[in-house]
Design a protein around this nucleic acid. Structure first.
Lengths: 205, 205, 205, 205
DNA sequence: AATTAATCGAGACGGTACGTCGGGTCTTATG
DNA sequence: CATAAGACCCGACGTACCGTCTCGATTAATT
């Protein structure tokens, strides 16, 4: 996604930037973060794993936070808009995507960043807010279509549904993680099903 | 709470540990973490704020992580069991407590730690799991009493209700935080009400 | 010697000081210093080796320097006045004593202290000066008696003789030490003989 | 002199080491040691005084001892070979240089280190031995030339002369230092003269 | 015998310096 | 120009030691 970048000069002069470097660095960043956590996530480690020099990293990202957030945001967009024809189908697919996202190390890292940034007064909060709002919009579109189709009453709140689905998926994933386990695809289907029923029940009331 | 401590030798020999030191240090840790976030949370800073030497800190906690987790866990137990007579009242009070907990810097820090620890393979996961299970038990007791009273059908899942309430409260709090806002007590009441209705709707189905 | 001690109150009340403690502590101090040098000479180490608590040490010496200097001075007085009847015999015996003194770990430690203290502006310099002057006096008495007996001319300088004997003995000892060797008693006799001849030659001129 | 350094890789890659840094650090080390003595000689202090980060120091010297010894050895070589045409002139110049060397804080620090290292079993002793042997050689060359010129008999011992000159100069300097005084240039000339006469008297016998 | 008071071993205390490590910057030689 | 390498300054890490302090447990001399 690399939203945080300054617009590159691209004057065509000098050696062009190595093509795959951004990717390799962001991948390395997510892997390092996934393996060692925040403490233990070092720029030297990222550079070494990506096989580049530190200056190559700092040429593209101004600091550690920015790199990590950028790397994480790119994966965060794995959760995108869906349209299966029914509100139930849409929410189910969204929930399944979420569970899979949280099961992955990089996906969970995204959540870590969000919670971390949300907790401290920070220049980056506004940016993540945009991402968060984007996700809320997906759900509101789903609910809006459901209202149009008459599946849920007009007063149903997309924001609430979003919070329930995202929040419950996150909490369930965390519990499994703390137990040291990992969700299978079948369990994800089952959990998503229950969760959607519950959310819809609330939306209908 | 200081669960992580090894049981002290307590041979009565030598100068006894200063009584209030643990408290002062943990308070200082939460304040430092709340003000500066993870980066910017330093042991020297904690010691200075608590008015103790670094050795006094390291005598009680083996490292930075352990101190922070311990400090955070102590506050985590602010959320305890409730019994108001109805499942609706119980869940409402629980939700209100949660919202208030997440509004507080130290409370949010707790969540940060949980998400962080859940993301990395770690010796501390098992411990936090215990705390997490404790919270699930509170909700399961509430639901069990609800079943006894006939408020919800026998098949209602306490774990699911817990995930919905905790997760949605967390997500809502995070959204407000990312927007830079802060929940008022009235908004908390309102949110808690909606959330409980939704959860109960799901539990009854 | 324990010159640095304040005069003890000795009011008779309370538990009397453990008799052998001073000795054990000073011995331990010299041993620790001899084994580990200045860096590596720790009060905890001394107390542990002497089998006493730190308070027992600090009750007798105000700090590390004082203890070490005191311990070292006690051994320093191993070199005392002599009177064999001839200036040659006196100086020979003095030189032999010196060589033996410098061969010993504690004796060498004494020299270390002297050089160390002489190098830094310090409250302890005056004290060591006294000791140094004492040694000079021994030699001056020897030379004065030599003058009386007509062995050396009236203008002979005791201070110069002292400097030559002490200095040359020290330098020779240092060279042997740096080579990792150790002077035998025969070598000491031989060195002392040469040294005295040289010093007397100078004194006679 | 920096003899202790491992030969550098010098692959030409990466930023080269700042040219004057070694010098600045060693100067700072000697100044700090001269001012505060061993206790009070801190790496942070050296780095600050040299205007350098601690890592820059530790990149060049493995620890405090090594730095100090290296710094001191460099100055130790201030005393070098002389050749004035007569043994008397040579020794006189050597003695004057020595007295001036010991008068200087850094010079005296050198002696401190020597005595300190000579006193403890240590990896560094062999190295200082080399320096010590070098000094002995200077004097032996002087004496050898004196023998060639017939100024002293063939059996004269350079080592003994060296010990007498170095030792007596050191002892005299120490006495003056302990008294809190400082040798003037005139006194140095006078002392050197006396000392050389005495040493030559011995060498001739 | 009870009281008083000093000393003892033990070890926690507030500090300070250690030697290491990582962040972000800068400087070289090489593409 | 960008890059890989790596030295730079800074500051936090967790450890060790200093000299102080506070314990409970002795150990006499004084009541």
């Amino acid at each position: 996604m690399t939203i945080l970048q300054t617009d590159e000069p691209r004057r065509g002069r000098g050696r062009p930037r190595t093509p795959g470097a951004e990717e390799r660095i962001m991948d390395a960043a997510l892997e390092e973060y996934g393996e060692h956590g925040w403490s233990g996530f070092t720029m030297d480690g990222v550079a070494r794993r990506a096989g580049v020099g530190k200056s190559t990293v700092y040429l593209r990202w101004q600091d550690k936070d920015t790199l990590l957030i950028d790397a994480v945001s790119r994966r965060g967009s794995a959760v995108g808009p869906v349209d299966t024809g029914t509100i139930e189908g849409d929410l189910h697919q969204l929930a399944v995507t979420l569970f899979r996202f949280y099961r992955d190390a990089a996906g969970w890292a995204t959540l870590r960043i969000y919670v971390d940034v949300a907790g401290a007064p920070d220049r980056l909060r506004g940016f993540l807010d945009t991402i968060g709002a984007m996700h809320t919009e997906f759900v509101e579109e789903i609910v809006a279509r459901g209202i149009q189709r008459g599946e849920v009453p007009a007063g149903a709140s997309g924001a609430t549904v979003a919070e329930v689905v995202y929040g419950a998926a996150m909490m369930h994933s965390m519990r499994i993680r703390l137990e040291g386990g990992q969700l299978t695809d079948e369990e994800i289907e089952q959990q998503a099903h229950e969760l959607v029923e519950l959310a819809l029940c609330g939306a209908r009331a």
